[in-house]
Every structure is written in C-alpha cells, then in structure tokens.
C-alpha cells in the first residue's frame, strides 16, 4: 500500500501525492526514511531537503523546519516554509549564503546580540539546503544518484 503525502505551509499547500513509495525526511534528530507500513510517528523537522519517491521518479523539496506526523500510511508535513526545486533561484541562494557567511564572520562588528547570530545561522542553513537541492537538479531529477 503506497503512502499518502501532503506538505502544507500556513500560506498554501505545497504538494499532495497519493502514490508515494518512500520519503526521506530531514527530521530534527536526523534523517528519517518513511516506507509504507511505518509506525505512527510525530517529529519536528530541521532545515534540509526532503526527497519524495514515486516508483522510479524522485523529487526533492527544501523544507524550512516545522513538523510532521505519520499515521496509517498518511504522512502530513506541516512546514514553516517549503520550496519545490523549480522555485529555487540558485543565484539568489548563493548570494544569500555569501551574505550569511559574511555576517557570521564579522559577528563582533555588525551583529548585536545573539538574535542576529541565530538569524544569520538559520539563513545560512536555508541557503545551503536550497543550493544542495538546486545543484542536483542540473543532473535532471534533483535527487542524489547514489541513493537510487
């Protein structure tokens, strides 16, 4: 029996699939692979890439935190933000990474307090996840070949 998957954010529904064979999820405490028949699970999400497999096809999505649950082969992802591969602008992501890195390096001069450091770190994580997914897209599927 295949998995049913929905990825939603507060703004909109990002993805809805009913014939999913495998999902690799960036959970807060490490990557989790969900196959049909998985035990009921509730977990928070980290910033990272999620890979959705439908038979031979695979699709990568950038997830910006949130949480997800699995019950009876239904996977619900409540993301704080999510982007499909097509929505990622590689150049912008690279620029964001450079900006975040610069901020973190010069943290004593232009960052005040821990909040901005945290923000820069989060921005860096988001941009890295975007770049990772977007680079793979050049290979065609947006998915790591070694996992196939």
């Amino acid at each position: 029996m295949p998995l049913k998957l929905s990825i939603v954010t507060a703004q909109r529904t990002i993805m809805e699939r009913s014939n999913v064979s495998k999902i690799v999820v960036p959970a807060a405490e490490g990557q989790i692979t969900v196959l049909p028949g998985h035990a009921a699970l509730m977990s928070s999400l980290a910033i990272g890439e999620m890979v959705v497999y439908e038979g031979d096809q695979a699709e990568a999505i950038v997830i910006h935190g949130g949480f997800f649950q699995v019950i009876n082969n239904v996977v619900s992802v409540l993301a704080d933000g999510a982007e499909s591969v097509d929505a990622i602008d590689l150049e912008r992501a690279e620029a964001a990474r450079a900006r975040a890195e610069q901020r973190l390096q010069g943290r004593d001069t232009d960052l005040h307090g821990g909040v901005d450091v945290l923000r820069a770190q989060l921005a860096l994580q988001r941009s890295l996840a975007r770049i990772k997914v977007a680079r793979r897209r050049r290979g065609g599927t947006g998915v790591p070949t070694q996992q196939r």
Binding site: A27, A28, E29, A39, A40, L41, M42, S43, S44, F67, I71, N72
Partner: peptide, 13 residues
Amino acid sequence: PVDFIFEPSPEEL
C-alpha cells in the same frame, strides 16, 4: 494509535 513514536518528547513537541 497504540504505539506512537515521538521525537523529541511529546512535551517538547
């Protein structure tokens, strides 16, 4: 459901 896995704990979630 009988067995529910929580990561981290339910309170933290």
